[in-house]
Structure formats: structure tokens, C-alpha cells
Write a protein that binds this DNA or RNA. Sequence first.
RNA 1: GCCGAUGUAGCUCAGUUGGCAGAGCAGCUGAUUUGUAAUCAGCCGGUCGGGGGUUCGAGUCCCUCCAUCGGCUCCA
Length: 644
Amino acid sequence: MINITLPDNTVKQYPKGSTSLDIAKSISEGLARSVLAAKVNSEVVDLLRPINSDSTLQLLTWNDDEGKATMWHSSAHIMAEAIAELFPGAKFGIGPDIENGFYYDIDFGDHVLTQEELPAIENKMKELVKQKQTFNRKEVSKADAIAYFKDKQDEYKVELLEELEDGNITFYQTGNFVDLCRGPHLVDTSPIKAIKLLNIAGAYWRGDENNKMLTRIYGITFPKQKELDEYLKLLEEAKLRDHRRLGKEMELFAFSQKVGQGLPLWLPKGAELRERLENFLRKIQKKAGYQPVISPHIGNVELYKTSGHFQKYGKDSFQPITTPIEGEAFMLKPMNCPHHCEIYKAKPHSYKELPIRYAEFGTVYRYEQSGELHGLTRVRGFTQDDSHIFCQPEQLKDEFKGVIDIVLHIFKTLDFKNYTAQISLRDPDDKTKYIGSDENWQKAEQAIIEAAEEKGLKTKVEVGEAAFYGPKLDFMVKDALGRSWQLGTIQVDYNLPERFELEYIGSDNQKHRPVMIHRAPFGSMERFVAILLEHTAGKFPLWLTPTQVIILPISEKYNDYANMIENELNEQNIRVSIDLRSEKTGKKIRDAELAKIPFMIIVGEKEENEKTVSVRKQGEGDMGTMSVNEFVSFINNEISKQLE
RNA sequence: GCCGAUGUAGCUCAGUUGGCAGAGCAGCUGAUUUGUAAUCAGCCGGUCGGGGGUUCGAGUCCCUCCAUCGGCUCCA
């Protein structure tokens, strides 16, 4: 007998060699039906894997991420099986589960798979699932495995196999389809009740753009049709929150083919909104001891050779502008740091001045690949809420923590709850991508890790994601469709101060090198506004939204009174508009609701006689009648609550 | 940049085997004077993404470029 410890710490005895499924059955039939995989001693395994020694066991169902992952991974196999039947000769790359579903990368040879063919694959999958096919695990030797896939002429699997260690290789078979796979998998296909193949995309084999591009098919499965329907509805609703759509509807920004792709045009309402965001941060920065600076939009190529950016990105930038006579070369500013370094150098500095914090809403231009451009989140011209902090080495950690505070304050004010704090470190195996000494990298990475830890941030470490001059702490936030975007960023840099030979005079009367922090709490105004749009579905907080109040007179008879209220609100710095059309009130309310204006003021005979206003809150309805003064203090109170 | 898809009025979308470019909303004008999510009528609005080709004739077929969308790659 062996002892099995369940999640609630109860210990039960089972015969040696019992499977997780046996144990599930012994607990309840219902559990046995819904269990998808098992976590035995923190390893997720097949339900049919025998357990031979005392273990902890967690039975994984659809409610566990690992349970979902197992089902989706198995679904990827079934999709591959369906494709192998429908498209003989198709070769298979990799087919993992992902956050929402699964994909498989497939080489269809000369055949170009179209969206129209997906239902046929889906139907085949449904057919296979109905057969209640089992997932049969088999351990194979490396030589046999390679021979099998060589025979099938599947060079992708052969390539994968050649990198695996012998004695560690397993196949999984469903029906006639055999796949190289570590597992785990479902016992059989019966939990898969609803299937949807979502889209087709190209993907480079092994993620390397020098390799062949395979066809990637994304799909998702659920244990209930209802859950699939709900998921598809969610995707539809996400489209309504797309910032590109909302930005157009709300007249915040636009693009023009004539101006050029990736070059956003801020419309009046968007420009004002952005200004409010900038002023919000300016106020915070002023309090935190930042000083504004301004630098030009172009800089001599020599500047970027000094910083190292030219060597690293010169080829992929907008190419230098050359002067007609002297032949000097200037680049469109792709980042602000080199300029700020030169501002620092404009005069000698004492240790008593440090930290020096230069801040600039700096517009930069980067030649992003055309396929990468995406609304306001990835553009070729954008404005960073940039700052560079120059400090003594011993001040670094406190400064870094101060910046974390600013980022968190902004996220809290704008209600970003689901962010990931990502520590991006250098890839120690590929140092060619980076500049600077090992010692400085070590110090910089240590500083970030410690500061994040001391601030109690839950962080995720990504190796190889650092900037070429230093490691960073990035705040990642998801858009409506779940795609992750970097907003705030804080970076430690020992390298640029060296390259620019920055100095300060220490208390010992000797020259010392400052450490530099690059930081942008919003990231860029463009991307931040985009993500904020998607999070709020265009219903910005009151302090930020373009129009706070709209006045709706019941009929033209009350236009004069409405105009009077408008003037009073204007004088109180409330952003107010007025709907003087000769439409019925219901129509005016509908339009104001759709325009996402937070408050409507409705005035007619009653209000004019009583010198009051009727207030309606967007999305909620009638709030009753009050005086103009009461309304103004109500609004101001709401705003100060949001900004505290 | 790569793979695939898409591009018709400001927006959402029709447009038959190639045969006179349409609707709703928005906008403008007028009527109406309205009480908490759509009043009625009329009018305006198009190089069918650009260019080239096939054809008696192209929104429709072919080529090419551009832009957009979904991914991949990249992201200072």
C-alpha cells in the first residue's frame, strides 16, 4: 500500500500501482468523470500513470489551469490527427496548448490552407472525438523514434528528436496518428465536447525568421457547448472595445495614408485628453523632484554612435537626413536618453545635486516593421513620458523604488489591476547582443531584483528581454483581446554614463560616474491611451473624459435656460456641451448614452421654474433633481475621489 | 519584413453568370416643441484603395502597388 496525500491534507491508502483515475473513482464517480489530469508530487501526469510510492495528489479538472492545458494539448493532437487524415503528406511542427486554446504548426507543402477549409477540419475532429479515441502513451528509444519520423518524411519531428536525450522519449497515439510528445494527455477524447478552430496564421519554424514559414492553426475546445458560445461572445464583445474603433468613434485620433502608416494624428478631443494625462503626471513629477527639459527632434549621427544606438539600430531606423552643403548627417530622434546625457554634461555636477531627474514628453520616431504596426499600440512616431535620473550608485535602489511608486500610483488611479511586473534580464549565453561589462550588468540586475522585492512586487523574470544597455522592470498590461503590451518601464543603466563620460564630484573631491535610470511610467502616450481605451471601453474616468456633462433641453423653449446652465458650468471648469437639436428627449438621451458622456442634465419647464437641473448618470439612469451648485460640488467631489 | 485575409458614401454593410453603384445610420434643410435609450419628410454624399491589363463593356476577371486586419519575427 502507498499513502496518497490529497490537497486538504487527508492521507488515504491505496494499492501500489494505483492510477490517479482509480483514486478519483474511489472518491466519487462525478469527480472521475470531470477529472482531466493529475498533479503527482507537483508533476502533471496522465490519469492512467501508475503511482508507485507515497505521493501528494491533486486531481485536475476544467477549473484548474493545468486541467485546461491538458485538454487543449490533447485537442491539438486531435486536430493534427484530423489534418493527417484530410491532408496526407502534411508535416507537423509543434502543437502546444496556450493561454486560450492551442495551436499546431503544420507544413502543408504546396497546398495553401484557407479559412474556408477550417470547418471541414473541425468536423473531422468532431468525428474523431465521438469515437472516444484513447491517448496511448509509449516510451520509445531515440533511434526508433527517429526512424519512425524519417520514414514518414517529417523532417520537423526528426529535428526535434535529434536534440532530445535517449531514454526520455515518448510517443502518444490516437487512432492511427502517432505524435512525438512528452504529454500529459487526457485518457480519451470524451471530455472534448465543443470545438472551434479560430484562425490561420503563418509562423516561422522554431520562431526563427530564417526558417521556413509553417501554417499555424489556432483553435479552442470546451467541455460544454455553452462555454464555447460564451467564449465566442466574449471575443465579439472585445471587438467593441478595440481602441482603433473607439478612437475613431470618439474622435480621439486618426491615421492618414498620406501622412504615412504608423503616424497617428491626434484629433482635438484626443489631444486634450492626452494633455490632461500629461498634466496629471507633470504634477506627480514636480512633487517628486523632477525637472522639465526639452530636446530637439533630430540629433547628429555622432550622438547615436556615442550611445551605441547607431551601431545597434542604425540600419533599421529612418535613415539619416544629410545637410546639403557640409554633408552632416542627422537622425530623427529614436530615443531621448542621449540628449539627456548631453544636458547633464552641460555643466559640472556636485554629489550634492544628485539625484538629478530630467523629464520630457519626448516625441521619437522608430522605423517599425510594417507588419508590426497596430493602432496606437505600435506606431512609428510616438511620445514617451520619458525621464532620466542620474544618481550616485548608493542612491540607485531608493530612486528605483521611488519610480515604482509613481508607476503604481498611476496604475491605481487609472484602475489597472491586472498587470504583470516583468524583470527583463540579459541572456548570459548571448552577450553579443549587449554592451557593457559583466560587473555593471551584475550590479544593475541585482538593483532591479532587490528594489522590486523590497516594494513587494510580484514579478516574472524573463531572461534575454533586457535592453542592449541594461536590464529593466516592465509593467505589462493586456488589451481587450488578451494581448500583452508593455506600458511602464524602468531601466538601470551603467553603460550610457560611461559612454558619455558623465561625472560628478564626490564628497572626496574626486570624479565619480553616476548611474542612470531610464523610466517612462505610461510608456508612451499613444500606447497608454490605447490600453486605457480598451480597459474602460471608452468610459474614461470623469477627470479625464473629453465631455463630462451634456445639457439636454426638453424643447427649444428651454434653450435659454440651458445656455445659462452651460455658462455656469463652464465657469466652474466643467467640460460641458449642449444638445440644442430639435429632437425628442429620448433621442438626445440615447445619443448622449452612446457617446459615453458620464452625466446628462435635462432641463424643461419644471427645472427652469425651480432653478434646478435633472441629472442622469450614463449607464445608470435618473439621479433626481438638484441645484446647479449642488451638481458642481457633486462633480468636483467625484473628481477629487478619483485623483486622491 | 514574412504567411494569410480584407479594402464599395463619414460609419455599418448589400451589389446576381461582367451589363445604368444601393440601403440604414451620420450630416444638411424643413416640419414638429417633444420629460429619461431612436419623430417625420426632403436633400447632400462615391475616381468602388491606387495604377495597369483583358473585354464592346470591369465594383465584379487578371497583374501590380498601397493600406488595414489576424498571426510570426522584431520592439532602443
